[in-house]
Design a protein around this nucleic acid. Sequence first.
RNA 1: GCGCCGGUAGCUCAGUCGGUAGAGCACCGGACUUUUAAUCCGGGGGUCGCAGGUUCGAUUCCUGCCCGGCGCACCA
Length: 496
Amino acid sequence: MESSQSPEEQLYKARLANLENWRQKGKDPFAITRYERTHLANEIEESFTELEGKVVRVAGRISALRAHGKVTFADLLDGSGKIQIMARVNVLTESGYELFGQLDVGDIIGAEGTVLKTRTGEITVDINDFTLLSKALRPIPEKFHGLKETEVRYRKRYLDLIANASVRHLFTMRSRIIQAIRRVLDQKGFLEVETPILQPVYGGALAKPFITYHNALQMSLYLRIAPELYLKRLVVGGLEKVYEIGRNFRNEGVDARHNPEFTMLEAYEAYADYHQMMSLVEELVTAAAEEVHQRLQIRYGDWVVDLTPPWTRKSLLQALQEATGVDFLSFRGDDEKAREVGKQLGLSVEPNDTWGRVLDEALKKKVAPQLIQPTFLIDYPVEISPLAKRKPIDPEMTERFQAFIGGLEVANAFTELNDPIDQRERLAAQQRQREKGDEEAHPYDWDFITALEYGMPPTGGLGIGIDRLTMILTNSPSIREVILFPQLRPEEGQGV
RNA sequence: GCGCCGGUAGCUCAGUCGGUAGAGCACCGGACUUUUAAUCCGGGGGUCGCAGGUUCGAUUCCUGCCCGGCGCACCA
């Protein structure tokens, strides 16, 4: 029987037996409900001069054990970092020291002791008492090499966080990036709101939705692809500055830059236009960068990116011409010619792609990858901007921009279209596209048009991809590195 | 969806031109009262991703499949 067990089971059984030992000594770790600690690891580090010789209580996970006969050193990992503790037989007594020897790497303990510096200069808590607070029944990843296998890191992110300090740091930075963005918007008087994720009609972006079903209402619902149309309803309602940070869902491919659920900031400001939105994007991104780097020059891949405003502003069509040598305006509306040009540029072109779609493709494949330093591409053709307002001097173009950093699109914004008649026509055109089989074209949201008919002030709106911004600010090559639980296929046997 | 690369002990990795596998850490036993990748001595631990095929014999060769990474396609 014993020999038929896998080694993993054997380790597990040994740990279970160890746990039983503690229980029989009346020290069941899982019976403990709290532990009063006085200091975090980094506080002891930072306030050593005041704390030296004083008694502190710390708690955390044992990340390493170094036993030397009658003295044992352990690294204790808590939310703030690592602190070394020292267990000595003459301080803990024979029985206490014996008990300490029963601890495993991975166990969570609380310990009380005196702060001192060892002769090698390490700040250490010389413990006089400890309590096992949780038993690790499984071994944690190896202390030196950590956990490397990407698949396990994503599937068992808790192990990744235990083993890799850089991962803990990265997700702390992500949180602070979002905090910085909230702080800026709140200071400017924006109201944070929440709008439906389950939507009867989806819109606000070009994307395929996830579909779900509400049993009681007996209807299909869509997971939102964007909050845009609801946020604009709020502007109609008089909430003049609103924003939402939340999850969007798009039923599309998964790769280094795309996860099916991702986090977007959308913000709308009444009586503002896209120029003000550009300033706001600069302000939000620089605030986030300063929050996590205290500077605006940051490393991304092989580059140093300088986020200092003002960022380069360049017309989209000019950028396209520079990157491809093609003047897209010269054959505007000629879908056939556009597809031909697209093929010549080496783009993947579908038989019914339109001029706008080829242009968009050229932008993504030929222009964006070159935009390493922060750049606003401005003024987009109306064909690919169904929710943006026309430029007064050139009604075939819209007041729209996208911001690129490190070759990634990080923001998309425009002066919002508030003319309900124009908006109805453009949504109707989208609807016709859908009927021709374009699954990503907008469906027709009647109530949104009705809302605009009550009058929306001139408004600027922006969207920032939080995951991508985090990629840039944490020098991460993949979006999965900045999402705690990225979408993966289920493991074999773990499916539904 | 297509192409390339990968999956060997709990973790990090070697390795087998086909003869059923090793190291370090972790774990178990022993020595050691200031270590920090502690050290030293001894020990246990593997359906070599899964399923077929070829073969006297497959972890190794072949085919299919699963999962992951990268690139392409789709998209933000």
